[in-house]
């Protein structure tokens, strides 16, 4: 059996992430926890090439979603999100990086305080003014990130 074949077999035997990896605690060395940052490239909604992508999030770390905008405005969809709490928005000057956008919209979020190891969640943002430069990576102007909470500690 080839190496790739073996790898695929092992992957198929598992039930997602938990079958394959033990999660070692990260050291608590005094550094402030940095956020998990998600950009438009992390979107999985309506993206066939993102199928099977697993995003695990450790408890205790902040979350941030950064999406190109201006004039497009992205909105957090609480009713289509799960196990996350919205904390605020910043608009950062970022012209001439991505066609049709002048800024980055930076959204701060955090896991809901009651989440436990193994809980699943979802983050959803939408826009009605999707720039054409994002029409394939965020089809329909719907950004979704699905995740599973882990708590190695």
């Amino acid at each position: 059996m080839t190496r790739l074949g073996l790898a695929l077999l092992l992957a198929s035997l598992g039930t997602g992430a938990f079958a394959e990896t033990r999660y070692l605690p990260w050291p608590e060395d005094g550094a402030a926890p940095r956020p998990y940052i998600f950009t438009q490239q992390h979107n999985v909604e309506n993206r066939p090439d993102a199928e099977g992508r697993v995003q695990l999030i450790r408890k205790g770390y902040p979350l941030q979603v950064q999406l190109p905008g201006n004039p497009a405005i992205w909105s957090f969809r609480a009713e289509e999100s799960e196990n996350v709490a919205y904390r605020g928005r910043t608009m950062v000057y970022s012209p001439n990086r991505i066609a049709g956008t002048e800024s980055l919209l930076v959204f701060d979020l955090e896991l809901s305080p009651e989440v436990r190891d193994g809980d699943e969640g979802r983050i959803t943002f939408t826009t009605d003014q999707l720039p054409s430069a994002l029409e394939r990576v965020v089809p329909g102007g719907v950004f979704v990130l699905r995740f599973t909470v882990i708590d190695p500690g």
Partner: peptide, 10 residues
């Protein structure tokens, strides 16, 4: 990455 399968690691 957390949760990476062997195939994804490869």
């Amino acid at each position: 990455p957390d949760g990476a399968t062997p195939a994804q690691q490869a």
